[in-house]
């Protein structure tokens, strides 16, 4: 097949993987630290996209609009954390999963109410293309990839080089012990949850110009984000990055081979990986409370 097609396919897959990573990283961190599965992250993703769209339409700005989207998502996640999750951290995982699914469904309902059912197009910040190995590639997609890389670096720096990161890593191992030392773990929880919300909102805002902004967008990425999280292993950041790009590539290159199969190929990949390693590529046995 045409080499040019493959190169643009790889770039497309990387940018898509970047969006998946931004979404899944928060989900994965929340699992590692609080032992919750926060399906409502997908609501923050949708909200981030809608707010970015709204600001973009009203002001014509693009990057600031995306920032607004991420911040609005963070604000909503803060409210949800204070009102809902703060009461249910001690419960089992399935409990948080069901509750957060309720939040997601309610939120999608609210979005439909405010913005309607019709998909909305969103302005792209950078229209330019750049030649890469002789192939014209949209600069915006490369920026998205760069942002995901920067976020990964920032999270790693935070976890390994700062005292708060040390506290988070310690709490992933044994939260009671951290609290026994006198660390206010609930603030860590809030911070992590809101951080995840901001990342999800950022993912939605960045994804907006690449797809249409529509009420179902959160539910549509659900399977892909889950695949990323599951393949990578719940709670592992490195695994999340690896599997995000893996799923991105499988979807992108898969669609070059046979378009209708692109939606299914990652699922097949996931099944194979789970058959081989039931807790994902990097899911460790250490992650037990």
């Amino acid at each position: 097949m045409d080499a040019h097609l493959w190169i643009s396919g790889v770039v497309y897959g990387l940018s898509m993987g970047s969006i998946f990573f931004l979404l899944a990283a928060g989900l994965s961190l929340c699992f590692g630290l609080m032992r919750i599965i926060s399906l409502d992250q997908l609501l923050y993703y949708s909200l981030g996209a809608y707010v970015a769209y709204q600001v973009n339409v009203s002001t014509g700005l693009t990057w600031p609009a995306m920032l607004c989207g991420a911040l609005a998502a963070g604000a909503l996640s803060w409210v949800v954390e204070r009102w809902v999750f703060d009461r249910i951290y001690a419960r089992e995982i399935t409990f948080t999963m069901i509750t957060s699914f309720g939040i997601l469904v309610a939120g999608v309902g609210a979005i439909k109410y405010v913005w309607g059912l019709v998909p909305r197009p969103m302005g792209i910040p950078v229209e330019a293309q750049v030649a890469l190995l002789g192939v014209n590639v949209p600069v915006y997609r490369i920026i998205v990839i760069g942002i995901a890389g920067a976020v990964y670096g920032a999270i790693q720096w935070l976890l390994n080089r700062t005292i708060v990161g040390t506290a988070i890593r310690a709490a992933v191992e044994d939260v009671d012990q951290v609290e026994g030392l006198g660390v206010d773990v609930y603030r860590l929880f809030t911070g992590t949850f809101v951080g995840a919300g901001v990342l999800s909102g950022l993912a939605g805002a960045l994804h907006g110009p690449l797809v249409m902004v529509d009420p179902q967008m959160g539910l549509e990425v659900v399977p892909f984000v889950f695949m990323v999280v599951i393949i990578g292993g719940l709670g592992s950041l490195k695994g999340t990055l690896v599997s995000a790009f893996l799923v991105g590539q499988v979807v992108s290159l898969g669609s070059l081979v046979y378009a209708p199969l692109a939606q299914m190929a990652p699922f097949a990949a996931m099944l194979l990986i789970l058959l081989w390693k039931p807790t994902g590529l990097y899911g460790s046995a250490l992650l037990r409370r």
Binding site: I93, M97, P223, I230, P260, M270, L274, P278, T279
Partner: peptide, 29 residues
Amino acid sequence: LVFVRLRSDYFALVNLALAVIVYHLMQKV
């Protein structure tokens, strides 16, 4: 045969993924 081996949190997520796959299968493939 595959799903039952999974831990409960993975089980829930994988099933949701399955629903979406079935949806795409019936709608497009």
